[in-house]
């Protein structure tokens, strides 16, 4: 199989070369319509190219997100930092959150009861880690949504991500999935002759890398509150 896969680009190259060659030899035999016609053709084409370039250089940027690109190694570093924090959190220690995670949203619910049930709506579709920290507070439940830095192909998308919605009803805290962020975009590169010397990428390496940030909710609750549900306790 691998041999065939290897041969495909070569065969493609051969076929294309032969195709272009045949076309060129054929069109070469035909008497071209004289200098004037070709001049018009070439002039017209060049004009179209120049207009298109002017348009894409001056007007397209309004639609273009000029990414502040993050290199692969930076992304790897970010991902490693996030994993480390999460791993330690599962072990019961959540610290140094800032840096790797962003505080996306804060909630504060007045709560008087003794038991709080955490309910995940649509559990099959949406699961978010919930960490609970007991604090010396009274009559209130505080929640914070942290989101880890997210990169799609080197572009920071963290800001675009929405937080889930939280609501307290009776003795239940329900977490509802946020609207799914669907990102679909087009990425242009000028070609290997341009990227070859810019030092960022190498034509022979696959450069499609993404980091999907981890996110979690940190609940701060009064120390005497009894929590039920799929949660992990930290910093006890």
């Amino acid at each position: 199989m691998s041999i065939i896969v290897m041969l495909i680009p070569i065969l493609f190259f051969v076929v294309i070369t032969m195709g272009i060659g045949t076309y060129m030899v054929r069109s070469n035999n035909k008497r071209s319509g004289g200098l004037r016609k070709i001049k018009w053709l070439l002039g017209g084409y060049t004009l179209v190219l120049l207009l298109a370039t002017a348009f894409s250089v001056t007007l397209l940027p309004e639609h273009v997100t000029e990414g502040k690109m993050v290199t692969r190694s930076e992304m790897d570093k970010v991902q490693a930092a996030q994993s480390k924090i999460i791993d330690r959190a599962f072990a019961g220690k959540l610290e140094n959150v800032k840096g790797a995670f962003l505080e996306k949203e804060n909630w504060s619910f007045p709560f008087k009861g003794s038991t709080l049930d955490i309910n995940m709506i649509d559990k099959e579709m949406y699961g978010i880690m919930v960490f609970v920290e007991k604090k010396k507070i009274n009559g209130v439940v505080e929640a914070t949504h942290y989101y880890g830095k997210s990169y799609i192909d080197g572009m920071d998308f963290t800001d675009k991500i929405e937080s889930p919605s939280l609501a307290v009803d009776g003795k239940t805290l329900s977490i509802k999935a946020p609207k799914m962020l669907e990102v679909s975009f087009t990425k242009f590169s000028e070609g290997f002759a341009f990227s070859q010397f810019s030092g960022t990428r190498n034509a022979f390496e696959d450069h499609h890398t993404s980091v999907m940030g981890n996110d979690f909710i940190l609940l701060s609750v009064p120390s005497d509150l009894n929590i039920t549900g799929d949660v992990n306790f930290v910093n006890e």
Binding site: I152, D153, F157, P178, M180, S210
Partner: peptide, 18 residues
């Protein structure tokens, strides 16, 4: 390339002058 997580799904089309 494409991918998805809890709250995000993405699809990237790469084009070049190659």
């Amino acid at each position: 390339s494409g991918g998805a997580s809890n709250s995000i799904s993405y699809e990237v089309n790469y084009y070049s002058g190659d």
